[in-house]
Simulated assay, not measured.
Amino acid sequence: MWHGEYRDPRLVEVYDAEHPWGWEDDFFMRVLADRMTPRVLDLGCGTGRLAIAMAGAGHDVTAVDPARACLDAARRKPGAARVRWVEGSFETLSPGAFDAAFLAGHVTELMVTDEEWSGALHALRDSLVVDGRLILDSRDPAARPWRQWDRAGTERSIVLSDGSAVVAWTEGVPAADESTVSVVHHYLYPDGLELTSAAVHRFRDETTLRDTLRAAGFRVDQLYGGWSREPPGLSDDGELIVIAVAEPRIGP
């Protein structure tokens, strides 16, 4: 389910250096401020950038991730003491514990099978109060982002805290139906060491997201294609950003 960047401390450092605060974080913080949401879940929190900011804004934040190396890096950051850090995944969530839940940073794509995705959505619905919000992002498969995932299209230099630079690139091979893409990330260090990390990404279109959310007990309230709240397909961001609301359970 999770990239090696989140498990190898050397790659966690590279990941953290490559992902400073961005416009997507501004978007999530604005969404969080739209309503009174004292108790917040960040599922798949990574190295904790968003969780720490949400806690700094006064929210009671629980940040959950299965990767210990990632959580270790998160705990070392300023402001980390305000966050409740949990090693685990959606199986660890308590019923009715949150007013809002976030699946940020394309975490949704790493839940590859239908069973895992459905299990996560049902667990998230159970963990939210009625009318609690689920906020998630996923790349829009209609934009076919994997077409650029080769060395020529993705090679970049990542500067670490000690001033050294790691050369990184990504290679992606889509399945025949393009519903999944096998991805390998390469990291070349100055001393010649090359580390790699492999994962499979699952891309769900707008219809699939809406249908699976509805089946898990959510109502899609808003759905955007970009971080400036453009409609799907009308932004160069190539995203599907969903704000869904937990509906009351029907029946016993």
Results as ranks from 00 to 15, higher is better:
R68V: 12
F98I: 09
G79R: 07
E87K: 12
A73M: 09
W85Q: 00
D65S: 13
A67S: 15
R82H: 01
P95H: 08
C70V: 07
P78I: 02
F90D: 12
R84S: 12
R76G: 15
T108Y: 02
A100C: 15
A73T: 01
R68L: 15
V83A: 05
V107M: 08
A100E: 08
A67V: 06
D72E: 15
D72L: 09
F102Q: 00
A80M: 00
T108F: 08
T108I: 10
R68C: 03
F90G: 06
E91Y: 11
E91K: 13
R68K: 14
T108N: 11
F102W: 11
D65L: 12
R82Y: 01
R75N: 03
G96E: 11
F90V: 09
F98G: 06
S94W: 08
A81W: 01
A104L: 05
K77H: 08
L71W: 04
V83H: 04
L93M: 11
V107S: 10
G105N: 04
V83P: 05
P78C: 05
A73K: 13
V107C: 12
F98W: 10
L93Y: 10
H106C: 05
A97P: 08
R75P: 03
H106K: 03
D72N: 13
V86A: 12
A104H: 06
D72A: 15
R84N: 13
A73P: 03
E87Y: 10
V83W: 03
G79H: 07
D72T: 14
R82A: 09
L71T: 03
E91A: 15
R84G: 03
S89G: 15
R68W: 10
R75D: 00
P95L: 05
G105E: 01
R84M: 05
A81P: 00
